[in-house]
């Protein structure tokens, strides 16, 4: 097992508008892309964010060696319960997933 952040080029989370969060995993090479594509799934992301797996969308983009997930923001941007206006703070959480 390895930490996701230690095997890929970059993990980025960002607002996709005030209501959605998007996660971009830049794998850097086809072999890492294959490993992450097999090793990280929608259920894992859903449990990491404490949300239902049905709300998580996944996009595999082999041309860019990128795996992308999008989900409704855990708190709508800027609401009283929101902790991170730009949504970038979830990146380290995703980067610390253990991947086989």
């Amino acid at each position: 097992m390895s930490e996701l952040g230690s095997i890929v080029d970059k993990v980025r989370t960002k607002n996709a508008g005030p209501f959605w969060l998007t996660i971009d995993i830049f794998c850097g090479s086809p072999s890492v892309f294959e490993r992450v594509a097999r090793g990280v799934d929608v259920d894992q992301i859903a449990s990491l964010f404490h949300v239902s797996a049905r709300t998580v969308k996944r996009f595999d983009i082999p041309d860019l060696n990128v795996i992308k997930f999008s989900l409704p923001r855990p708190a709508i941007q800027g609401t009283v319960s929101d902790r991170d206006m730009h949504g970038a703070g979830w990146g380290p959480l995703v980067a610390e997933i253990e991947v086989a």
Binding site: N15, F59, I61, L64, V66, K68
Partner: peptide, 16 residues
């Protein structure tokens, strides 16, 4: 081609 196509990911919930 990588920097340009990767920009479709940015702040977009659907990259396509």
């Amino acid at each position: 081609p990588h920097t340009v196509s990767a920009h479709m990911l940015y702040e977009n919930s659907d990259p396509f």
